[in-house]
Design a protein around this nucleic acid. Structure first.
Lengths: 157, 157
DNA sequence: ATACCTGCAAACAATTTGCACAAAC
DNA sequence: GTTTGTGCAAATTGTTTGCAGGTAT
């Protein structure tokens, strides 16, 4: 896979590749690479597990140097999520967080122990969708799929 | 299907059957069928689409007669959700709401136009899960699956 | 009688907004 | 220079909590 593309095999998102892709997309879309936004990006790349807006904001406050305002953090997250660079991850317990992702049709496998997120393509739902379309007369147009499990590292412990 | 069970074919949850099942479960679990709780139950059965806690509370305030306190509404919802009588439904837009459901392994198909919810069993994910387990070395232990589409009635319009 | 449950009101948490100023292109 | 973005602080909105008193069984 190239550094600017989503993985075709199940894999963690590479933080550097992700940040580069976001910067490229910002530039292409006429969005400015400001200091606060770059700080947000950098902090996100350090998370191993899904994070919340408030957690990110708190971590930015704790960091050295200029601290972005809360509004900027929320606005940046909104932009990234809207453009597909952040996926909303729902834990089994019901809390929601963001994880780096790529635009397009991807799903996520989340470790219930350490929180690492694996993105994958190919959800193999065709048969199910056909069966349900036939049984319900719905025109099915989308879906939400997320998997939970324990990653190899956590299982060893 | 009996009036107290989840549908084995894809179907809307029958409101009366659902309310009866909840009352039976409350009784079996030693929970009391109080006036406020019954009002909550009754109001829920009138929704055609997923609802939020605040929406439910507002509707209860608008109704005639005794009005439950906000805390009671939230606590009742928490109980119902925890016991599996309410499913958390995530819309495509990202908002969350509750919809009547049954305990056990069910998934939901939501109309993006009118919001009606169809519950179904059988998610046919076995092959996908095996493939991913092999590719990632995760021990997969659960999943979140929801489908979106337009129901027959909405398609006619 | 005795758990269990309720309502209130305050605390808490999360997110959004308006607007004057600042920075990027 | 103009457009786009930022920070602040207040306003919203959503949810939880402690506790004195009420109610179902």
């Amino acid at each position: 896979m190239s550094v600017n593309e989503a993985p075709s095999r199940p894999a963690r998102v590479n933080p550097e590749a992700w940040a580069n892709a976001v910067r490229a997309a910002w530039h292409a879309g006429g969005l400015r690479a400001t200091e606060p936004r770059l700080r947000v990006l950098k902090t996100i790349t350090r998370y191993a597990a899904p994070f919340t807006a408030e957690q990110l904001y708190t971590d930015l406050l704790a960091a050295a140097g200029e601290r972005p305002g809360r509004a900027t953090v929320y606005r940046t997250l909104e932009q990234l999520h809207g453009a597909g660079w952040l996926a909303r991850i729902h834990t089994q317990g019901g809390e929601a967080g963001y994880a780096p992702s790529f635009p397009g049709h991807l799903h996520h496998l989340v470790c219930t122990s350490c929180g690492i997120v694996i993105a994958f393509e190919g959800c193999a739902l065709d048969e199910l969708l056909e069966r349900l379309a036939a049984q319900t007369s719905f025109a099915i147009e989308g879906h939400l799929l997320q998997l939970y499990g324990r990653c190899a590292a956590c299982r060893k412990r």
